[in-house]
Amino acid sequence: MGFFLDAITSGILMGLIFSLIALGLTIIFGVMNIVNFAHGEFLMVGMYIAYWCNVLIGLDPLFGLPFSIAAGILLGLASYYLLVRYLLRGPMIAQLFGTFGLMLFIRYLALFIWGPNFRTVSHGLLMGKSMLLGNVVVLDLSKVVPAIVSIIAFFIVSYVINNTKVGKALQATALDAEAASYMGIYADRMNALAWAIGGGTVGLAGGLMVNFWYITPEVGLLFVMIAFATVALGGFGSIKGAFYAGVIIGVIETLVGVKAPSFKFTIVYAAYFIIVVFRPQGLFGWKE
């Protein structure tokens, strides 16, 4: 029983990270109907930034977070202004391939610069520390803190989107970009903002993940697929949906991982397929 509870809690903690990764993807999709294949690569860059901050200047991964966020935002903005803007003029197939090309570009640039080795951050404030919950469940601090940060990040982003002027402008663009433009909201700027938020949040996720996950140039594909499944389950474009769906996916992944470790991600892909085919609006409906 204790073992089962362990799996559930660690699934929830991992799931909150999945939620955070999916947050940026769902915002970008919601605002401009584009799927960003390079999203996992943004995550990977966030991880490397945290790693190098740790190795080069001895910064604890926790304090490296602002750098990971900044890198994510810059990457998001650069992707938007240098590539995505031009893709918008083309058909959907061009958009798909465009961000797919971006994914390959960032991944192999990272491989070129940093090599294929697996790297890990070996020293950190959170590592190796744990706490007991009710004498049954052992909580690994290196996962607890990231999960809490993820919840805070969700809270901030939801607050900004629901309660500020710029957030409302973003929602207006998501609902109808053309109508929003008549009200003086520049879709171009809102798109850029979506990419900045998307990049920033996933950069943050990357910075958090180095506390417990290895870093390689190839880490992105796995997590982008998980993020797709999360966004699909939560409903494309839904922020609340992404939050809960990430937790659900995290629990499923961990439970399957206990029984059949080699299939723990297979189940996520299969879940995506089944969800979009049988409940395409996700758990929480469409954005409209």
Binding site: G90, A94, F97, G98, M103, L104, L109, L111, F112
Partner: peptide, 22 residues
């Protein structure tokens, strides 16, 4: 030391085609 360079060139081609002439 030049690992992945071929795929970088690849990906640049993909992005250029997608952005300029789908």
């Amino acid at each position: 030391g030049l690992l992945g360079l071929d795929l970088i060139i690849y990906s640049i081609i993909i992005m250029l085609v997608a952005a300029l002439e789908p």
